[in-house]
Simulated scan of single mutants.
Amino acid sequence: MQEFFNGMADILEIDADKIGPQLNLGDYAWDSLAIISTIALVDDLFDQMLDGQALAQCVTMADVLALITVKA
């Protein structure tokens, strides 16, 4: 999961230590480019395609994490 957090830090252009479930995405660069980049990141790391509209509705990092189902 740390690789995902590092990727999200790059996408949001913030330090990785700020990434956590309570992070408010609206406080950072959570725009259409970030959403597309997040879809690509999740696809690359978890082999899962997220719905862009659902992702756009996310307010916190916890909301994003709830969309990701890690396959066992």
Rank of each mutant, 00 (worst) to 15 (best):
residue 66 A to C: 02
residue 21 P to L: 12
residue 49 M to A: 12
residue 53 Q to Y: 08
residue 21 P to T: 12
residue 34 A to R: 07
residue 58 C to D: 06
residue 46 F to N: 06
residue 27 D to C: 11
residue 31 D to A: 08
residue 53 Q to N: 13
residue 28 Y to R: 08
residue 29 A to E: 14
residue 28 Y to I: 07
residue 67 L to M: 08
residue 55 L to H: 09
residue 27 D to Q: 14
residue 22 Q to K: 15
residue 46 F to P: 01
residue 23 L to V: 08
residue 52 G to E: 10
residue 61 M to G: 03
residue 51 D to H: 05
residue 49 M to F: 08
residue 41 L to V: 00
residue 66 A to V: 04
residue 55 L to S: 10
residue 64 V to I: 15
residue 36 I to T: 11
residue 42 V to G: 04
residue 25 L to F: 09
residue 30 W to D: 03
residue 64 V to F: 07
residue 53 Q to G: 01
residue 60 T to S: 12
residue 45 L to G: 04
residue 31 D to P: 00
residue 24 N to L: 15
residue 64 V to N: 06
residue 60 T to M: 07
residue 64 V to D: 06
residue 62 A to M: 02
residue 54 A to T: 06
residue 55 L to A: 09
residue 68 I to Q: 04
residue 66 A to E: 14
residue 59 V to A: 09
residue 61 M to Y: 15
residue 35 I to V: 13
residue 50 L to H: 08
residue 23 L to C: 01
residue 28 Y to D: 07
residue 42 V to S: 01
residue 43 D to A: 08
residue 44 D to S: 14
residue 47 D to P: 00
residue 58 C to I: 02
residue 49 M to V: 15
residue 61 M to L: 13
residue 24 N to E: 14
residue 58 C to R: 03
residue 66 A to I: 08
residue 24 N to I: 13
residue 70 V to F: 03
residue 21 P to Y: 10
residue 51 D to Y: 02
residue 42 V to A: 06
residue 34 A to G: 03
residue 32 S to K: 02
residue 23 L to G: 07
residue 21 P to F: 06
residue 42 V to D: 01
residue 42 V to C: 10
residue 54 A to P: 01
residue 31 D to K: 07
residue 57 Q to A: 15
residue 40 A to V: 07
residue 22 Q to I: 03
residue 31 D to E: 11
residue 68 I to C: 02
residue 30 W to Y: 14
residue 63 D to C: 05
residue 32 S to Y: 02
residue 48 Q to N: 04
residue 64 V to Q: 03
residue 30 W to V: 04
residue 39 I to Y: 08
residue 61 M to V: 13
residue 42 V to M: 07
residue 68 I to V: 14
residue 50 L to P: 14
residue 52 G to R: 07
residue 61 M to I: 07
residue 47 D to H: 15
residue 67 L to G: 10
residue 44 D to Y: 11
residue 62 A to K: 12
residue 57 Q to I: 00
residue 69 T to F: 00
residue 36 I to D: 00
residue 47 D to F: 10
residue 25 L to I: 09
residue 40 A to R: 10
residue 55 L to Q: 11
residue 60 T to K: 10
residue 43 D to W: 01
residue 51 D to V: 08
residue 37 S to R: 09
residue 31 D to I: 08
residue 48 Q to C: 12
residue 64 V to K: 02
residue 28 Y to H: 15
residue 68 I to G: 06
residue 40 A to Q: 12
residue 38 T to V: 03
residue 54 A to W: 00
residue 51 D to M: 10
residue 48 Q to T: 09
residue 51 D to S: 13
residue 42 V to F: 04
residue 69 T to N: 14
residue 62 A to F: 06
residue 62 A to E: 14
residue 39 I to N: 02
residue 70 V to M: 11
residue 37 S to C: 00
residue 33 L to S: 14
residue 62 A to V: 04
residue 29 A to L: 14
residue 66 A to L: 04
residue 45 L to H: 07
